[in-house]
Each structure stands twice: as C-alpha cells, then as structure tokens.
C-alpha cells in the first residue's frame, strides 16, 4: 500500500492561510490503513485547524468528509458540491489523491495535507517500511523476493557494499542490509548461484528516469468502447 504521514500543522495552516472556507477530504483506502488520512484523521485535522484559526483571531470555517478512494473519478463525482463551496481543499489522500482532486475539479484550489512517503507495509503495529520503488522492471525473481532497488540505500544489484555490518546498513542502524537479507534467503534456498551472476546495468527507462509513465491496455479500451 501507499504509506504517508501528515504534514506539520503549521505547514498546513500556511497553505490555507487566506481561505475563509476550507474542506478537508480524507481517503478511505491506503492512507486510512496507515492512520494518516482516513475519516478519523480528517476529522481531527479539521477540528485542529478550526481551533487554531479561532485562537489566532481569524476563525476559518473548516469542514471535512471522506471518500472511499480519491484516485478514481467515480468516487469524486458525489462531492462536487462541497468542493465548489470551499475556497481551499486540503486533500488527505496520497499525492495521487491530491492530483486527482485538482484534475477532476479544475476550479478548486487543492493543497496536500500529507507527505506521501513510500510503497510499503506495516512490519509491526506503528511501524511501516518501504518495499517497492516501482522501477517498472521487477527483479525480485533474482533476489529471493527482497528488493535491492527499494531497500538498499545505493540500489546495488551485485551484492552488498563494504558498509554492511552485523546485518544492518551503514546509513541507518535501524535499516537491515537488503543484501544481507537477500544473501540469507538465497542461501536458505540453496540459490546462491543467482548471486554469482553479474547483473548488467539496469534499464532505468521503465523507472521515473524514462519520464512520466503510462500504461495503455488496448484490450480494456476496446471493451470500454463497446459498453458505450
């Protein structure tokens, strides 16, 4: 899932400073699961912003609502009226959600309430870790299901650097060395032969380096046209 965390309140207050009427829009999917931008967080943020503006002597009208998924048009259509009434919309969706709102409601001024952090999972209650960097060309089949692009600080493809010590990364003692994990797993599966092969320079064109990405599925498009 996409993992995010809320921006500092002061930063959000700066983003809405000139508005009298503010709408906070939560999202019921990834950011709900990571406790950053769901119904509960949207409610708390709206209350905090209201209180802060009152204390500041410049009371703002801050309301909130939550949609099931900010990143799909069909979930946004029903909130068109509330969006229209707001001078500023604070999206508590991920970066996709913010942009979906801005794209779907060109007249609205949409600002982010979250910093979108990474694609990952909760490894224990209250802890999330990155797992995928969306490089567009998955190599997990060569690395025992552990991604060195997302989990090695240097995105190495041919084994651990000299800074791997006692299983942790030299960059951060709380980060396991991805290549130690890969090594252990390949060894356990008797597949260390995979590590002996030199992995050639990666084709980064499928990653962000190739420019913004787009997937077109002609099979699905044709179906859509027939439905129309």
């Amino acid at each position: 899932m996409i993992v995010a965390e809320q921006k500092p309140l002061d930063e959000i207050r700066d983003l809405i400073a000139d508005a009298g009427k503010v709408l906070v829009v939560g999202c019921g999917t990834c950011v709900t699961v990571c406790f950053a931008g769901g119904e509960k967080e949207a409610g708390i943020l709206a209350t905090s912003l209201r209180m802060a503006s009152k204390l500041n002597g410049n009371a703002q009208d801050v309301t909130h609502l939550t949609v099931q998924r900010q990143c799909e048009w069909e979930y946004l259509d029903p909130i068109e009226e509330q969006i229209r009434q707001a001078e500023v919309v604070v999206s508590l969706g991920c970066g996709v959600g913010v942009q979906a709102l801005a794209e779907h409601f060109p007249q609205a001024w949409v600002v982010p309430g979250l910093n979108t952090s990474f694609m990952g999972l909760p490894t224990e209650q209250g802890v999330w870790e990155e797992r995928c960097a969306a490089c567009g060309s998955c190599i997990l089949g060569l690395t025992g299901g552990i991604c060195p692009i997302a989990r090695c600080a240097k995105q190495l493809l041919n084994g651990p650097c000299g800074g791997s010590q006692d299983g942790v990364c030299e960059v951060n003692a709380e980060t396991p060395c991805a290549w130690q994990l890969i090594y252990d797993r390949l060894k356990a599966h008797d597949r260390l032969d995979l590590l002996m092969e030199i992995q050639p320079p990666k084709d980064w064109s499928t990653s962000r380096d190739g420019g913004p990405r787009r997937i077109t599925r002609e099979d699905l498009r044709l179906v859509a046209e027939q439905v129309e």
Partner: peptide
C-alpha cells in the same frame, strides 16, 4: 560504489547509483 551522501556535507543531495561498482 561511493560513500553514501548522508555521511558527507551535502546530506540532502540526490544520489545517482545508475551503475554499481561491478558494472
């Protein structure tokens, strides 16, 4: 490969790592 930028005097820099040392 190169030391990670977080150890140096420009810790907010973007790193490259297009290749690794073997490549």
């Amino acid at each position: 490969t190169g030391d990670h930028q977080s150890f140096g005097n420009h810790p907010t820099a973007k790193n490259v790592h297009d290749l690794d040392s073997v490549q």
